[in-house]
């Protein structure tokens, strides 16, 4: 079972944990990507995330299916936030349940790696010297 969303709302990882918990799972692994203040000594003031919403959700569903197929995972919930995010706020959260811990860790790690690789979401970094789209040639 999977639940995915791209949302403007603050992410509460508790809801994801509650959603994936299962009587036959002994392991829950979660990952949260948060807005970091300093990267290589450069200060970030805040970020703005933009998504191609329908496609992003569709891709996240696909990644969810992959996790459930490739690993012995039972449930996965993944939410990505868009809009303005301040330092310390959660940009993405993933929770995965599995009977055993190895699978929960692998499934969760796989999900965030794939999300960062393929899901059409972009961040614009606002720093002390102005703003730029991260990773873009634009």
């Amino acid at each position: 079972m999977k639940h995915v969303a791209v949302t403007q709302e603050e992410i509460d990882v508790r809801h994801l944990i509650e959603w994936v918990q299962d009587r036959n799972c002994g392991a829950v692994c979660t990952f949260m990507g948060t807005v970091r203040e300093f990267t290589h000594g450069k200060r970030t003031l805040y970020l703005e995330y933009e998504a191609y919403q329908e496609m992003a959700e569709k891709m996240m569903e696909k990644i969810g299916d992959e996790v459930l197929e490739k690993f012995q995972c039972t449930k996965i919930a993944a939410v990505h936030r868009v809009g303005r995010l301040d330092i310390g706020e959660v940009a993405v959260a993933i929770a995965v349940s599995a009977p055993h811990r190895k699978d929960a860790f692998q499934g969760c790690r796989y999900a965030i790696d794939r999300i960062k690789e393929f899901v059409p979401i972009w961040k614009k970094e606002y720093g002390e010297d102005g703003s730029y789209w991260v990773g873009c040639n634009c």
Binding site: G33, Y49, A51, Y52, M55, A56, H80, A91, V92, I112, I115, K116, E117, F118, V119, P120, I121, W122, K123, W133, V134, G135, C136, N137, C138
Partner: peptide, 23 residues
């Protein structure tokens, strides 16, 4: 995501996807 050879048909929703940077 599609390959270079994919044919575009009327009514398709086309999008240019710059290198993603979510997470």
């Amino acid at each position: 995501y599609v390959t270079q050879e994919t044919a575009i048909k009327t009514g398709d929703q086309i999008a240019l996807i710059p290198p993603v940077s979510g997470g």
